[in-house]
Simulated assay, not measured.
Amino acid sequence: MIECFNLTKKFGQFTAVDDLTFTANKGQVLGFLGPNGAGKSTTMKMITGFLQPTSGNVKVCGIDINEDPITVKSKIGYLPEGAPSYGEMEVGQFLNFIAAMRGVDKNLMKAAVESVIERVSLSNVYYQRIETLSKGFKRRVGLAQAIIHDPEVLVMDEPTDGLDPNQKNDVRELITNMSEDKTIILSTHILEEVNAVCDRAVIIAGGQIVADNTPSQMEGLSSYHRAVSFVSEVDGELLNALRNLDCVRDVDYNARLKEVTVFPTQGIYIFDDISAFLQDRKVQVESLKMESGRLDEVFMNITQSVEEREVIK
């Protein structure tokens, strides 16, 4: 478990993190979202002990980081932004070094390194110097060092940054599998990642928490929640007929994609009504779906409103 109490971090007159209080529980993947400069990385650095809070405190697995920082750090696996490492070292050398630094038993060290090499798919670069690796492989080495000691808590800053689509899926699957017995916090700017791996999402802007919900609850805040989209050749008469339905609030038409989005009145369920309407009119559709909601729209609306308030100040 991670408990943050009234965390604040100031750099001179600038407040990067402003009185944050939240808890991440064991078995939970918490997605940490926010625009650039919102305070995500600063918060993660305070949780892991890399930065001292201006005020407030952090407990990890019930231990106050100010009272026993060494024990707290031993329980955390940390993947920071940029995945810093020793570029002149080979991948295998580096991971053996990290395992030793993390206190992995000498009798278990070989097995621990081999396990993490397999889990993060690094066998092909085991003898390669880290400075010669691609950005994606460097990121995977960073992830490997974070999990090599099987920590109770994982804190990861953009864990899939620089990975190709297949590698992203592999890492997301790894995170999901590890989440059963760990507390995981990850920051990401990839909103599809929130749906893929997170049980809960916290959005911060201006150093403050502005939303804290499950991904599905956040999608429910979207104007697209329960909207119905279909792809078809349509004309103005059909669009107007759709707009005049009692269950319809608005209709949007993307002529380039030939996609029609029908927005429901007060978020009611309209899929059957729209499907029946299209059948009655004998409209041929290429696809028909109900929207769950769009996190990007919710994220933009919430964070922009905060930024506007900051400008007014």
Rank of each mutant, 00 (worst) to 15 (best):
D164N: 06
D164W: 04
D164M: 06
P165V: 11
N166A: 13
N166I: 09
Q167P: 03
K168F: 00
K168H: 07
N169R: 11
N169D: 04
D170N: 15
D170M: 10
V171Q: 09
R172I: 03
E173W: 00
L174K: 07
I175V: 08
T176R: 15
M178E: 06
M178Q: 10
S179T: 04
S179W: 07
T183S: 15
I184H: 02
I184Y: 01
I185T: 05
L186I: 05
S187T: 08
I190K: 12
I190L: 13
I190G: 12
I190W: 00
I190S: 13
E192K: 07
E193G: 12
V194Y: 00
V194S: 05
V194R: 02
V194N: 03
A196I: 06
V197Q: 03
A201T: 09
V202Y: 00
V202S: 13
I204Y: 01
A205V: 04
A205P: 00
G206A: 05
I209E: 07
A211C: 04
D212A: 13
D212C: 12
N213D: 14
N213H: 14
T214L: 11
P215K: 10
S216V: 12
S216E: 11
S216T: 14
S216K: 14
Q217R: 13
M218H: 06
E219C: 13
G220Q: 08
G220K: 12
L221H: 06
L221W: 02
S222T: 07
Y224F: 01
A227L: 05
A227I: 02
V228R: 11
S229M: 12
S229Q: 09
S229H: 04
S232F: 00
S232T: 15
V234T: 05
D235A: 07
D235N: 15
G236F: 00
G236A: 07
G236M: 13
E237H: 12
L238N: 14
L238H: 04
L239N: 05
L239D: 06
L239W: 00
N240V: 05
